[in-house]
Design a protein around this nucleic acid. Structure first.
Lengths: 137, 137
DNA sequence: ATGTTATCCTACTAATGTTATAGGATTTGT
DNA sequence: ACAAATCCTATAACATTAGTAGGATAACAT
């Protein structure tokens, strides 16, 4: 299992936008500079976040990106699913992969696991991440 | 994020072995038949489980595989780590990937996430999976 | 109008990881 | 010696990841 760069960079871009105090929003170019991510690669990250409806901008020269919701109302799962539609366990996602799915202890476990994982990702909001509300360590 | 076939097949092999009532253990060949996994591919699955010390056999003709511990004492995390040493988040695993690691909200989150994920995988034992102790749905 | 700034959009590519298969060496029971 | 079964190494097709490249488009500034 691996968290890929798109999701990690996407998270950083969201944190960058959420942390900005500029009422005009944040330019993609500036996110690229702040976060040290290539402008071109960031292109595809931003596109995915925008398509998911988590950020928005006006077009043209001076228009930065802003969150479409309050950071309290955006979870890690929201950001995750901007890049991957779900957590993939082939025997759950695609029944043709396995014909014993109607009675498989292993599959039953993975269904439960997947639910718990989505729960973990859903319980944390962007604002909790930024302000570190939980006081761990 | 994806659970790959090695981990899923490994789980099924472990369930197969744990469920057997034969005191001689279970032959690799028979696991391959029960689970509909190619004997050759299962080779590498079994090898990993064995290297991790979760199963053992004698060599030669009639010697099947057995668990080395009680199924109550084997967790999904034990099985998982037979195939992958950890849950990979590059910015945690490999500091050279990122030079802002000393102050990165995103990285802080992933460290916390990884801990919770390992907790989920560690809390479930093989016997709980087989006997479905939790009574969900 | 024209140039500048910045995003939008499509295609491509090198490297890596996944999911196996192939072929034979080794070990032990009969 | 032979058969049954595992052990071990190499290879390969395919998919995914992590970008790069090149230009089209939109809007602001002069």
């Amino acid at each position: 299992m691996k968290i890929n760069t798109k999701i990690r960079y996407g998270m950083r871009a969201m944190i960058d936008i959420a942390s900005s105090e500029n009422p005009e929003g944040v330019l993609q170019k500036d996110i690229a500079i702040h976060q040290d991510i290539s402008l071109k690669y960031l292109d595809s990250i931003i596109a995915a976040l925008k398509l998911k409806g988590l950020i928005a901008n006006a077009r043209g020269k001076g228009s930065g990106y802003k969150l479409t919701r309050n950071p309290e109302e955006i979870t890690v799962w929201d950001i995750y699913t901007a890049f991957e539609p779900t957590i993939i366990v082939d025997c759950i996602e695609n029944k043709k992969f396995c014909n014993r799915s109607c009675d498989c202890k292993s599959r039953d476990y993975w269904i439960e696991f997947k639910g718990e994982l989505i729960e973990i990702l859903s319980k944390k909001s962007l604002s909790q991440i930024i302000f570190n509300n939980n006081h761990t360590n």
